[in-house]
């Protein structure tokens, strides 16, 4: 019963509505790319790059919550650990950024398989608790092991040169690099969601028992989705390190796991654009409130409460519901 409710409340497929196939859809893609290309001339590029990294993180998370109905409360483990690994190989091994990202992302795929195999043994709220506990293990490992430099983190990580050719030292070049990674990640998730595999995931979310009776090995689908999500979260973390040149404990804490939940919830669970919008809002809020002690935490908590009580569809979900309503009243003007 609860799974049914979840599909209704957690997964309005709204945001995707704007991105349907066909030539009309291409207009939106092109518009999006132009916005990405022009934005750094209007807004501070590092700030934008930060938003894009978190947006990718949230997209990865949403793949799991919005399309499989699994709430991971431990995604910071992948985000943060990938940051450490990519920072470490950049700084200590001196590899180029794309190689560092590949190594870190691949490592998170492995970690994703391991954690996934443990976590999918329990459903629903248990899944959330298990992922949280597993990520706390990663936090303590990061706190204690040598390569992470404990409380100090890995500092002064060089950005290097893309393919050894194009230096990423300038704000603008790192921005475009991040934007490129983001677009690839976004496209990938978009394709996954609209593939036959994505359809199976949705049917698992809506009614797992039925999916099983149709002959799908739902555990395998869930594991694959978890691994993809972990890998992409790793990609986001590995990329973020290049922007800030720092890998620190912040990125592996449970607070960070909570933050990505907040971004997705606020933007709209189960929508394509929701996580991007949510990341934009939360990152901006951080920048605004950074100076005022614990106020950020309090505001975040309040947003959580508000979202859950009155705003469950999130920004994108609400907007697309509003658009749908408007369209349908236009099509069927009120009789009499």
């Amino acid at each position: 019963m609860s799974t049914n409710e979840m599909s209704k409340t957690l997964g309005p497929d709204g945001g995707g509505g704007a991105l349907v196939v066909g030539w009309k859809a291409n207009r939106w893609w092109i518009a999006g790319l132009i916005v990405l290309a022009v934005a750094p001339f209007l807004v501070y590029p590092i700030f934008l790059a930060k938003i894009l990294c978190f947006a990718l993180f949230a997209i990865a998370f949403n793949l799991l919550l919005g399309y499989v109905g699994l709430l991971s409360f431990g995604h910071a483990a992948f985000f943060g650990m990938a940051a450490y690994i990519s920072g470490h190989v950049m700084k200590e091994w001196g590899v180029t950024p794309e190689v560092a990202i590949l190594i870190a992302t691949a490592s998170m795929a492995v970690l994703g398989v391991v954690f996934g195999m443990i976590a999918i043994r329990r459903q629903g709220i248990y899944f959330a608790m298990v992922t949280l506990a597993l990520s706390q293990m990663v936090y303590f490992l990061a706190l204690q092991s040598e390569f992470t430099h404990g409380e100090d983190g890995i500092q002064g990580i060089p950005r290097g040169a893309f393919l050894g050719l194009v230096s990423l030292e300038s704000s603008l070049s790192i921005y475009y690099f991040v934007a490129g990674v983001f677009v690839l990640g976004f496209l990938f998730v978009y394709r996954v969601i609209h593939s036959p595999f994505g359809q199976v995931l949705k049917s698992v979310r809506e009614n797992e028992a039925r999916a099983t009776s149709l002959g799908y090995d739902t555990d395998r689908y869930k594991l694959l989705a978890f691994t993809l999500s972990a890998t992409l979260a790793g990609l986001a973390g590995a990329t973020k390190v290049l922007v800030f040149q720092l890998a620190s404990l912040t990125d592996v804490t449970w607070q960070m796991s909570g933050e990505v939940v907040l971004m997705t919830l606020l933007g709209g669970v189960g929508t394509i654009l929701g996580p991007v919008v949510g990341a934009g809002i939360v990152v901006s809020m951080h920048n605004l409130l950074a100076e005022i002690g614990s106020v950020t935490t309090i505001v975040q908590g309040l947003i959580f409460i508000l979202c859950v009580l009155v705003f469950r569809r999130g920004v994108v979900g609400e907007v697309s519901a509003w658009l749908r309503r408007r369209r349908s009243t236009k099509k069927h003007p009120r009789a009499g």
């Binding site: 609860s2 409710e5 979840m6 409340t9 957690l10 709430l71 409360f73 629903g124 709220i125 959330a128 909570g258 939940v261 919830l265 975040q300 908590g301 309040l302 947003i303 959580f304 409460i305 979202c307 859950v308 009580l309 469950r312």
Partner: peptide, 12 residues
């Protein structure tokens, strides 16, 4: 509603 919402609310 889905039980996840309770978890999210108490987290907030």
């Amino acid at each position: 509603l889905d039980h996840l919402y309770g978890l999210l609310l108490t987290f907030g």
